[in-house]
């Protein structure tokens, strides 16, 4: 593996690569609960890397994925790192388009006030429309 690899760019040397210049719409679809499987944590790692590429990034939380951004997560008893504060740091990476599916909140008895970041709550029909406008959709 390359010695030159850095945390922030994930193995890409921007000076040598031709990846710069193109801006695509990247959407990350988060559908799974934050703990129980590693999908949510590793999804967040991809999101943070994508920020280094100056792409048009958005995140959707739906199904059990809405639990990823619920306030008041305590994970000490299961001996797993509570990574939920990282969602609050996304703003600092210029990742500000966070969408939540209204139906998923309703089904789980949650409201926007239960969430630890500012989001846009949208119907599944509205989300389908935004999804159709994307260049790259990665679902976890």
């Amino acid at each position: 593996m390359g010695e030159e690899m850095t945390e922030s760019t994930g193995g890409i040397d921007f000076e040598d690569e031709d990846a710069s210049g193109v801006i695509k719409k990247f959407m990350f679809v988060n559908r799974k609960a934050p703990y129980g499987t590693i999908y949510a944590l590793e999804s967040l790692e991809v999101v943070l890397i994508s920020a280094a590429f100056d792409q048009d990034v958005s995140l959707i939380f739906m199904d059990d994925g809405v639990y990823q951004i619920v306030k008041g997560q305590h994970t000490k008893a299961i001996d797993v790192k509570n990574f939920s504060p990282t969602y609050r740091a996304l703003e600092g990476y210029d990742i500000e388009k966070l969408y939540v599916e209204k139906e998923s909140l309703d089904q789980r008895g949650l409201t926007e006030d239960d969430l630890l970041v500012d989001v846009q709550v949208m119907s599944s029909a509205e989300i389908a429309k935004i999804m159709a406008e994307q260049d790259v959709v990665i679902s976890f």
Binding site: I12, I49, Q55
Partner: peptide
């Protein structure tokens, strides 16, 4: 083996 940047690229 390389980094996640390869996926975004």
């Amino acid at each position: 083996i390389s980094g996640l940047g390869q996926l975004v690229e």
